[in-house]
């Protein structure tokens, strides 16, 4: 049970992430990675194709800073920093991708 934290939409980084994620893991999108929560980008679609039930959270502050809070894909969950802290404790470890 790993919490993966990713901060950009770089396709190569997401490709590597894809190979490391297990079905019981969760993902938090922060900083510019919140753009991957929009319905169009391929990064999240590919990830969900591999892991359909994956728990994906998106940091609400970073969504708001980019003006896209209302536009995230269904199924993705907006979380606060406090939720982020709690998520990091629910999981056994945190891996930061950058």
């Amino acid at each position: 049970m790993t919490l993966h934290v990713i901060n950009k939409t770089d396709p190569r980084l997401w490709q590597t992430l894809l190979t490391a994620v297990l079905p019981t893991d969760a993902l938090v999108l922060i900083e510019d990675a919140v753009y991957a929560a929009l319905p169009a980008p391929a990064q999240a679609s590919e990830l969900l194709a591999h892991h359909p039930g994956l728990h994906v959270c998106v940091l609400v502050d970073d969504l708001a800073a980019r003006g896209i809070s209302a536009k995230i894909r269904p199924g993705f969950v907006s979380v606060s920093y406090r939720d982020f802290v709690a998520l990091s404790l629910v999981h056994e470890r945190v891996v930061n991708w950058h």
Partner: peptide
Amino acid sequence: SSGAALSAFRFCEAALESGH
């Protein structure tokens, strides 16, 4: 320069607010 330091700061604040 990037969002990294501010993200760390906000996380740190939230962890303390949550009693950690």
